[in-house]
Design a protein around this nucleic acid. Structure first.
Lengths: 148, 148
DNA sequence: TGAAGATACCGGCAGATTCCCGGCCTGAGC
DNA sequence: GCTCAGGCCGGGAATCTGCCGGTATCTTCA
C-alpha cells in the first residue's frame, strides 16, 4: 500500500505542494533533474496515487464566506447515509472527519454570516448534539508532510 | 475586501478547485469562453487574492503517514510565539485553527505510527491540556464553496 | 442624443512548455 | 561477459501560454 519515495521524490512533492502549477522544466531545475526525468517521476506519483490531484486554493473571506467554524457532532445513530447526503448537498461543509471519542464527527464549516451559520448548525443538529467553535484565525496554510 | 464574482467566475473557481492543472484552453472550453478571456479572468482572480495558490494533494497514507488525528489544545497562556515556532518546525501539524470556546486551538495532526503520534502529543501537552481524537476516515475530499 | 471611455471578449502569433520517442549509462542476475 | 531493467538525457512535434490589436457593448457625461 505504501509507496517507496527517495529524497528526490520528497523534494518534488514539497515543490508541488507549495506550487502545484510550477512548469515541469522549472521543477526539474529545482530538483536538479532533466524535464523528462521529472515528468516521468511526477507521472509515476500520480498513477500510484501519491498525488491525488491538484487544487486551487480560494480565499473564503474574499468570496463572501466571512465565517469559519469547527463543529463537533455527537451522532448517536449508526445510519450514516442521511448525514453523507447532507454533506454532498452543502458545499459550506468543507471537511468532515469521523473520529474516535464522544464526538463522532468533526466538521469544518464556512458561512457567509452568522444567520447563515445558524441555519447550517440547525440542519446538523437534526442528526445529534453539536458543539460549535468559531475560528478566529487559521494559523497554518496547509503545507503537507515532509519525509518521515 | 470582498470581491464581486459573476457566475462565470464561480464556474472557473469550481473547475480550478476540482483540477488546478487544467490548461486554460480546456478551461475556456468548459466555461464557454475563449482562452484569452479565461486567462484574463484567472489572472484577475489571482492578483485580487481570490485564488491564493495551487497545491498538489498528497495521499498521506501512501507516503507513510498512517495516522490522522484531531487535537484540541486548551492553551492557558497568552504568549503564542512558542506554539507557532513548534508549528513551523513540525510538518506533521497540518492545520491549526484558533477558535472560541474552552479549547483555544484545534489542530489536525498526522503521524507515521502511534508512538510517533504520542511523541507529538507530548510536545503539544507542554503548552496546555490536550484532547486527542483519532480519525477513522475523512468523508469529504476538500471541494470548496459554491456561490453563496 | 451622441461621443468618449471602460470593460470584456475574440483571433492570431511568438515563445515556452509538455509529451513522446530513441538512445545512453549503470547495476543486478545469470 | 552478456543481457535485461530502471532511470536518465536530449530532440522534435504538438500543445499551451502570454501578449497584441481589434470589436462589441455598456456607462458616463456633455
Amino acid at each position: 500500500m505504501a509507496v517507496n519515495l527517495d529524497p528526490t521524490d520528497w523534494s518534488i512533492l514539497a515543490e508541488l505542494q507549495r506550487d502545484g502549477r510550477v512548469p515541469l522544466t522549472e521543477l526539474g531545475r529545482r530538483v536538479s533533474l532533466s524535464a523528462s526525468a521529472v515528468t516521468e517521476r511526477v507521472r509515476r506519483l500520480e498513477t500510484e496515487g501519491v498525488i491525488t490531484g491538484y487544487r486551487a486554493d480560494v480565499d473564503l473571506a474574499k468570496v463572501g464566506f466571512a465565517v469559519l467554524a469547527v463543529v463537533r457532532l455527537k451522532y448517536p445513530g449508526s445510519r450514516h447515509e442521511p448525514l453523507h447526503r447532507l454533506l454532498a448537498e452543502r458545499s459550506e461543509i468543507l471537511e468532515c472527519l469521523r473520529t474516535t471519542g464522544e464526538d463522532c464527527y468533526t466538521l469544518k464549516v464556512t458561512a457567509t454570516s452568522m444567520p447563515h451559520l445558524e441555519k447550517l448548525i440547525d440542519e446538523l443538529a437534526g442528526f445529534g448534539s453539536t458543539t460549535t467553535s468559531i475560528v478566529y484565525s487559521q494559523t497554518l496554510p496547509y503545507r503537507g508532510p515532509r519525509t518521515p
